[in-house]
Amino acid sequence: MAYTVARPKLTFAEKIYLPAIVAGLAITWKHLINTLTGRKKVTMQYPEEKWDANLPEHYRGAPTLVKDEHGRERCVACQLCEFICPPRAIRIKPGELPRESKWAKVEKYPEEFDIDMIRCIYCGLCEEVCPEQAIFLRKDYAITGLSREEMVHNKAKLYELGGVRTGLVHKWNEKK
């Protein structure tokens, strides 16, 4: 239902705009001078100055895959990250570990694991959903490439970025 909004009563000074305009000009002038004299500095000149040392522990950079201290690739290709990924950047082709493998008990591993970094939105849901502590968002943020293919991180690249992570739960190690 339509109803009338009570309009504020404007004083004469407000009606002729001029005091407000002058006040506004004063504010912008102050900002202009502060910036020009360098009294206020917000911008960081990126490629020369970097903030890398200050990145917090919880920084969400590029998602990566990790191996544990036993050299086992932790991903078991459960595809939950592929399922949760909002922009559908993850693509997994599951495979079966050969019987003679040291970790044959795990049975499953990712044959292919691609993350399309053009699609990735760095939301971290893949890390959150991973039941195997296999995918982590690291501090790499400058992901560049000259072609779309280059921007798709394959399994090798993901392990290269992720490296080894220690101190994780080892549920597959106990004799079951």
Partner: peptide, 11 residues
């Protein structure tokens, strides 16, 4: 029961 839902096809 093993805790292997991540690899179990029935999941």
């Amino acid at each position: 029961h093993p805790l292997d839902c991540p690899i179990c096809d029935q999941a």
